[in-house]
Simulated scan of single mutants.
Amino acid sequence: MKEAREKNDNIPFSFIEEVKRKNPLVHNITNIVVANDSANGLLAVGASPFMSSTIEELEEVVAIADVVVLNMGTLNDEQLDAMLIAGTKANQLNKPVVLDPVGAGATTYRKKAVLRLLEQVHPTLIRGNAGEIAALADEKWHAKGVDAGTGSGNVRLMAEKLATQQQTFVSVSGEIDTITDGTTSYYIKNGTSYFTKMTGAGCLNSCICGAFLAVDEKRSLESIVVGSTMYALAGELVANELSSLAVGSFRTLLLDKLSKLTSIEVLRKAMIEKERN
């Protein structure tokens, strides 16, 4: 454990308290399945959620927000237009944008939509599962709806390829989370399989990453690592407390754990590896 602590000493876990102190306003254009959990999860870590895709108010909302999170979960043409407006405005105001390309490889419509977004909006972070990242990196993968699906590609190489192509950060959730800027990569080995049984687990991860980017003036890769590690560890600790499969309890207790975790506990229990090309 001493070695793990030393490896993590340069990671700014103090951002966990910084989110609570600064209470960043996170503007979400998200899907109807996860809106409630995403909002409550943001409140649990100390951020303030704003859920709106109303085109008439988007520029005003983005102007007061600290970060914009775009989630394609229940995508339609009107929502895509809203994402283009919000993302473009955020870029103009130099505010971070998180793109969650839900189901990007599942249908032709979604693939075209996300490519259109990437043509007009520059995201600070693209966060998704392996199937979604593979679709954006033009790698072979068998997507299963909005789930990760299966494939034989190297997740790290896919993530690095996409990060380099788009000049952005990329985070891939899975048994081991991979977070990269194309040159430096972090691997988070905390987590639990319970996340795969909870609708919107990845979506909430994107929201939390957005909150941590919002309080990081440097918009560093490490702020995403902190948010992702906190989230993965919260799920792991809750799963360890459950004596048997209890998906509903996991969802509720996850919010409780997110509200209580401190930087000291996350530093002590984080399992993170770093690799540089």
Score class of each variant (00 low, 15 high):
residue 2 K to I: 14
residue 3 E to S: 01
residue 4 A to F: 08
residue 5 R to N: 08
residue 13 F to A: 10
residue 15 F to Y: 15
residue 18 E to M: 15
residue 19 V to C: 12
residue 23 N to Y: 13
residue 24 P to N: 10
residue 29 I to G: 08
residue 31 N to S: 06
residue 39 A to F: 03
residue 40 N to P: 05
residue 43 L to I: 13
residue 44 A to W: 01
residue 46 G to Q: 09
residue 49 P to T: 12
residue 54 T to S: 15
residue 57 E to T: 11
residue 61 V to M: 13
residue 62 V to H: 07
residue 63 A to M: 10
residue 66 D to N: 15
residue 68 V to C: 11
residue 74 T to R: 02
residue 74 T to N: 11
residue 76 N to Y: 10
residue 77 D to I: 04
residue 77 D to S: 11
residue 77 D to F: 03
residue 77 D to L: 11
residue 78 E to Y: 14
residue 79 Q to R: 13
residue 81 D to T: 13
residue 83 M to E: 01
residue 83 M to L: 11
residue 85 I to M: 08
residue 85 I to T: 03
residue 87 G to L: 05
residue 88 T to Y: 03
residue 89 K to C: 05
residue 90 A to F: 06
residue 90 A to Y: 04
residue 91 N to T: 09
residue 91 N to Y: 07
residue 96 P to D: 09
residue 97 V to M: 05
residue 98 V to N: 09
residue 99 L to F: 07
residue 103 G to V: 00
residue 104 A to W: 02
residue 105 G to D: 06
residue 106 A to T: 10
residue 106 A to Q: 09
residue 110 R to G: 01
residue 112 K to E: 15
residue 115 L to M: 14
residue 116 R to L: 14
residue 119 E to H: 13
residue 123 P to Y: 10
residue 124 T to F: 02
residue 125 L to Q: 06
residue 125 L to N: 09
residue 129 N to Q: 12
residue 129 N to W: 10
residue 131 G to W: 03
residue 132 E to V: 12
residue 134 A to M: 10
residue 134 A to P: 01
residue 138 D to N: 15
residue 138 D to Q: 15
residue 142 H to A: 15
residue 144 K to T: 14
residue 144 K to A: 14
residue 147 D to G: 12
residue 155 V to D: 00
residue 157 L to C: 08
residue 159 A to D: 06
residue 161 K to F: 09
residue 164 T to H: 13
residue 165 Q to C: 00
residue 167 Q to M: 15
residue 168 T to S: 08
residue 168 T to G: 01
residue 170 V to A: 02
residue 170 V to F: 01
residue 172 V to H: 06
residue 173 S to E: 04
residue 175 E to P: 05
residue 178 T to W: 05
residue 181 D to N: 13
residue 185 S to A: 11
residue 186 Y to E: 03
residue 186 Y to S: 02
residue 191 G to K: 01
residue 191 G to I: 00
residue 193 S to V: 12
residue 194 Y to A: 04
residue 198 M to D: 12
residue 200 G to S: 02
residue 200 G to M: 04
residue 203 C to W: 00
residue 207 C to G: 08
residue 209 C to R: 09
residue 209 C to N: 15
residue 210 G to R: 09
residue 211 A to V: 04
residue 212 F to M: 10
residue 219 R to L: 13
residue 221 L to P: 04
residue 223 S to F: 06
residue 224 I to W: 07
residue 224 I to Y: 10
residue 225 V to E: 01
residue 225 V to S: 00
residue 229 T to H: 10
residue 230 M to A: 07
residue 234 A to D: 04
residue 234 A to C: 10
residue 236 E to T: 11
residue 240 N to Q: 14
residue 242 L to N: 03
residue 242 L to M: 11
residue 243 S to A: 14
residue 246 A to F: 10
residue 249 S to M: 12
residue 250 F to R: 01
residue 250 F to E: 00
residue 252 T to G: 11
residue 252 T to P: 04
residue 253 L to I: 12
residue 254 L to V: 04
residue 255 L to S: 08
residue 255 L to P: 02
residue 259 S to H: 03
residue 259 S to Y: 01
residue 262 T to M: 07
residue 270 A to N: 07
residue 272 I to T: 12
residue 272 I to G: 06
residue 272 I to S: 03
residue 273 E to K: 09
residue 274 K to L: 08
residue 274 K to S: 02
residue 275 E to T: 14
residue 277 N to W: 05
